[in-house]
Design a protein around this nucleic acid. Structure first.
Lengths: 174, 174
DNA sequence: TAGTGCATGTAATGCGTTACATGATTTC
DNA sequence: GAAATCATGTAACGCATTACATGCACTA
């Protein structure tokens, strides 16, 4: 099957435990959202495609009048997931409005440029706070889940220090 | 006017010197591409919108049979640009397939997980190489242009060190 | 009984890339 | 005279978000 952006996120999450579309949306938001977002408009159609391809299997699991469709990964899906994990592509796309502003900050008085740097630092700080809020304290995660979580924390901390360093440097130069 | 993603990139670049659509595409690719890409399919229609809004003014500058339309920023456009520079929004969107892989690497044997980390390190190294290639050696850039360029270099260097550190840690743990 | 959370889904819209079409000029 | 570069533009497509529609179950 033709794999798109969400394919691997959903397949990977289902590789750990069976979930419904709703569960998947929450799992995405709680874990990988800050580097790989996905919306309902992608998730539900993609689940159908994955099921058609035989990579996942769904069964009805409604309780009472409430409908619910629970998906689990198949052996075929697990093979596809492993193949993708071994793939070598490493695309990183960044869309960072704050960097764009900084890039044009020479058009501003020096003080205001420094203000933009401070705003970036503040952006990192807020993201750090958000990330720390994600930690549910429910004990240790598997090593690579933990690794990626650490990456995000470390990245924010690095970003804050970087801004502070540059703020000092620019003030000295002025 | 309704500002979209490319609006500010084009307006900001035209704030420095007049350029054609073709020039703008090259300027984007040479400078801000790694955190804010733009394609012809966005640039040419956006230039028309910007001109209709009075934020830029175009004039024909064809030489001989070759057509060329040169755009410059207007006073109105400059005001709009400054307003945006003062805006407080700091959206950072990341789409990082390598992090997604790492996130699911617990499904692999430990050695292969480490391989993914090494691949990420290699990704940073290649981006660093690409960035260094951008430096045309044509003397010093304005301070904030230089700042953003430094950011990209420093980010890659940090990323490489981070991977090395984590590779050591995971090897120790194993 | 009102609000929140569980649960599924689609339609409209917007953003962005890729691929193509066209043709002039410069450089080797 | 072939290849690279300058130059403009559009059409088709794919990816993603937003907003909406619908309704059940639990809890305060």
């Amino acid at each position: 099957m033709e794999a798109t952006a969400v394919t691997w996120a959903l397949l990977g999450l289902l590789g750990r435990r069976p979930m419904s579309g709703y569960d998947l949306k929450r799992a995405v938001d709680r874990t990988i959202r800050h580097f790989w977002a996905a919306s309902y408009g992608q998730i539900y159609p993609e689940l159908k495609r994955l099921e058609e391809a035989g990579w996942i299997a769904g069964k009805d699991a409604g309780r009472g009048g409430r409908s619910r469709r629970l998906y689990r990964i198949t052996a075929q899906g697990r093979r596809a997931l492993k193949d993708w994990l071994h793939g070598e592509e490493t695309r990183i796309e960044l869309r960072d409005e704050s960097l764009l502003r900084l890039f044009f900050a020479d058009a501003l008085p020096a003080v205001e440029g420094l203000g933009l740097l401070a705003a970036r630092r503040e952006g990192y700080r807020m993201m750090l706070q958000y990330l720390r809020g994600l930690d549910d304290g429910k004990g240790p995660d598997p090593p690579f889940i933990d690794l990626v979580y650490r990456w995000a924390l470390d990245y924010c901390e690095w970003g804050i220090e970087w801004c502070e360093r540059q703020e000092r440097r620019l003030r000295r130069a002025a």
